[in-house]
Simulated scan of single mutants.
Amino acid sequence: MQSTNLECFLDCTTPVVPSQFLSKSEASKLNRLWHPWEREKVEFFSLSDLWNSFDEWSAYGAGVPIKVDAGEDETIIQYYVPYLSAIQIFTSNSALNFLREETDSETRDSFSDSFSDESESEKLSRWDGCSSEEGVFEHENALPFNDRLGNLYFQYFERSTPYGRVPLLDKISMLSQKYPGLMSLRSVDLSPASWMAVAWYPIYHIPMGRTIKDLSTCFLTYHTLSSSFQDTDNEDHNGFSKKKREVGEGIHVPPFGLATYKMQGDLWTSGRNGNDHEKLVSLLNVAGCWLKQLNVQHHDFNYFMGYRHG
């Protein structure tokens, strides 16, 4: 069965990351609140490999085949560039202590000093997710430890205009200079509350020449970073029929939530007798519920939804 335009977008922008397996001794030490399932083999990926999966997309854009005229069966390739929109990484006390020891003390001290003049209300608003600044992991600023949520190691919320942003891989490279855990942490080290949002902006399509309103649509995809949700749903992939992984194929990190901006017409919702529209509504609701559950104000999500804050 031929994929719809929405299915093609979700498939073509889903990262596929090299798979690794924990040793039995390491698997026995996993947090059972985060990894309650007994598995013969515990599969995981490293965050560095996840970011590297965005390498080509960050440089050239992700190509998505889109059927623009069902009657004439005309297909074009639309390219989208990924940008880091938001990220929160929650991990355990032991991992946090290790990262603190590994971080260069001079970098840590200078970054701590940069927030020394903040008022308490500014600190609270930053930890509530209302700031675009990175989070810090100093003891005096860290959130109280929660067994299920974990400790907040890092967070970032982008507030720049699309034209003022750098592609995802470049942004991560910049942020990891102060936060090496962005490269060294693994999906099994992260709590189920760890997530990221990727903003996808269209840049060009091949062949050129056609002006189609819906090709200006922007997307916001939400992805879990923790192994806790990995392969727990055997029925669907991106909300559609799940594709069986090939032998040796990497781990798929599909979006669990989605928001759109400038979506006009029915280019993205005309497939599967209305099922695509239902799926868009469902993915949007999940994204909104996720942010509400974590008490997060996500700037891009609010903008996409038309919320305006002073």
Rank of each mutant, 00 (worst) to 15 (best):
D266L: 06
S92E: 00
C130L: 11
I89C: 01
V17R: 12
V136R: 08
S228C: 11
S121G: 00
A70T: 10
A287L: 12
V296A: 02
Y222S: 03
S125R: 09
S23N: 04
T4C: 13
L283M: 11
S184R: 06
N52F: 14
N146K: 04
E133Y: 11
G209C: 01
N141H: 15
G248T: 10
L96W: 00
A70S: 08
L168P: 01
W200Q: 02
A62Y: 08
N285R: 11
W51Q: 04
G164M: 06
V16E: 09
S85D: 07
F240W: 08
W34M: 05
N5R: 05
S58K: 04
S216H: 00
L220S: 03
L284K: 14
C12L: 10
G129F: 04
E122I: 02
H252Q: 14
D113V: 11
M174L: 11
G265S: 06
S112G: 02
G61Y: 03
Y201F: 14
Y79D: 06
N238W: 01
R32Q: 07
G150Y: 00
L190A: 06
A86Y: 04
Y201L: 07
S53C: 05
S119E: 03
K178E: 10
V247Q: 06
A197I: 05
N97G: 07
G288Q: 11
Y80E: 06
I212W: 00
L294P: 01
L280D: 06
Y201M: 11
P36C: 06
K279D: 00
I66Y: 05
W127D: 05
K279W: 08
G306H: 03
E133C: 04
S125Y: 10
F44C: 02
L283Y: 11
S132D: 12
V17Q: 10
I77L: 10
T217N: 06
M174D: 13
S187M: 05
A27S: 15
L152P: 11
R272Q: 06
A70V: 10
S131I: 04
A197S: 15
N238Q: 04
L168N: 01
S114E: 07
T269E: 06
V188I: 12
W268I: 01
A86F: 03
T260G: 07
T260I: 13
M305R: 10
S125H: 09
L280R: 02
M196Q: 11
L220V: 01
D104L: 07
Y204L: 12
V198M: 09
P180E: 02
S194K: 02
F115V: 09
D147R: 13
A59D: 07
F219Y: 14
S216T: 07
Q293E: 15
T269M: 04
L50V: 00
D266F: 05
E138S: 13
R165F: 01
F45C: 08
F154H: 13
A86Q: 14
S121Y: 03
K279P: 01
D128Y: 08
A197M: 12
C130V: 05
G274C: 09
D170M: 12
S25E: 13
